[in-house]
Design a protein around this nucleic acid. Sequence first.
DNA 1: TACAACTGTACGCAATACGCACAATAGGCC
DNA 2: GGCCTATTGTGCGTATTGCGTACAGTTGTA
Lengths: 259, 259
Amino acid sequence: MAEQPDYYVKSAEKTLAVLLAFDAGHQALTVTQVAEAISVSRAAARRFLLTLVDLGYLETDGNAYRQTPRVLDIGASYLSGLTLPQVARPHLQQLAVELSETTALCVLDDQDILYVERISNPRLHSMNVSIGNRLPAWATSMGRVLVAELPEAAREEFLSKARLTHYTAKTVASIDELRAELDTVRAQGWSLVAQELDEGLRGLAVPVYRGKQLLGALNVSVQPGRIGSASITEEMLPLMRRTAQDIADDFGGRTAARN
Amino acid sequence: MAEQPDYYVKSAEKTLAVLLAFDAGHQALTVTQVAEAISVSRAAARRFLLTLVDLGYLETDGNAYRQTPRVLDIGASYLSGLTLPQVARPHLQQLAVELSETTALCVLDDQDILYVERISNPRLHSMNVSIGNRLPAWATSMGRVLVAELPEAAREEFLSKARLTHYTAKTVASIDELRAELDTVRAQGWSLVAQELDEGLRGLAVPVYRGKQLLGALNVSVQPGRIGSASITEEMLPLMRRTAQDIADDFGGRTAARN
DNA sequence: TACAACTGTACGCAATACGCACAATAGGCC
DNA sequence: GGCCTATTGTGCGTATTGCGTACAGTTGTA
């Protein structure tokens, strides 16, 4: 697909490909399965697998390979730095307490939203997403906020690549319908998505802006028991906007302090 | 250091080394800094950095490089599978509610404990650890449980490599003192560590066993306001042991269902 | 302006990593 | 049990990949 400039290190791509071959549906893989999954020879797959075992990122019973917890190291450095999730956590916690709901922060990565921080209310059993998880952007409140705020060209490119799936009866049906919804979201500055991805689940999201830079989107999952949409936005939006502002200020202040 | 068998793919090691060079203290690195950090030539570091930018794991302003949220992908597959953290989460949530405290699950990785799941109580501002973070095993309640349950030889190897740091006035002072403490922990089946890593922080941990296999350690952070040690263990231990058992049962049942 | 300390880039060379081909092993079926 | 298929481990010659030097461009400071 992509061009391969002369500085390109193919082995780096393969290394990551091997690690990513172990996705949610494929916990344990054999040499042959990995070779097929990432389109390399069996010998090559084996070399990479054995190397990653040596490095401690994979383990094997002699036949199948699986990831070890050490793979978490790679993302942990991102989470622990003075990055957005780290800065946002206390604010998301405060908001989670004030609203007694689950709060989350996402960024846009290609066609997906990527959870970078999430404070779940242990009292509720909410959706089983954790940090690093992806959801299709078009079907989520955070995704719609993030796409709506994109420049026109990028937004249209997103729409052209979007693959709408009919999750529930309320899921948006067409690209045109989605485009109209995005216009509304951009105009009002927030998005409420009700039961489009999952029955009985409503998400309310606002953008997190630092000046003109869009840092991410902030979300509150609204439990089914809660009152109607009108009062939800009335009640929650001001607090969410204040939280978004707090995160942005804090992020700018702290990162500016570093050189 | 380590031998390099003839199947070894050096580039795989370098790829991971580059990604890990961006640790908590080094958010943004230049080509030269990376080259120094992982002991490769500047040209090599540049090739890997540019490749990782192409792959979307790093971004650059033309000078410094930093990680993108996409690095979370690598660990996300581990977290989402039918692995320990995924299975443990609902049980940790329930326990967090019952005790109104923060709960966590760790595994041992070398000399460190590695957080694989954590349910923080938003009402408390507890220590700022997140999934994938490491803490020195010898100084934590979970670490002591995990090391105590190790076979004799492995336990002694751990002790021989341990580097004790004097965190607080209450920190254990010598290897012999630590060895005695581990004996106690093994005998009683739990560990309470009070203010050894951080003032005002107490952790209580029990092992999570599935049959004879040690899956990990379960922890409750005890807030300072709580009553004395005796009643803490009396009150909390039964619930923690029940949770550990639930996790183990659930883990075995679900993973056995897969082939 | 000159210097220092960075950067980006090209290119010849060596070693790395490739993938074929064969051997060995494991499982399924009559 | 014995045959067959499918999958795995491994050695080896070779092409390619990735190496690092060397040079040129860029930025910032004295």
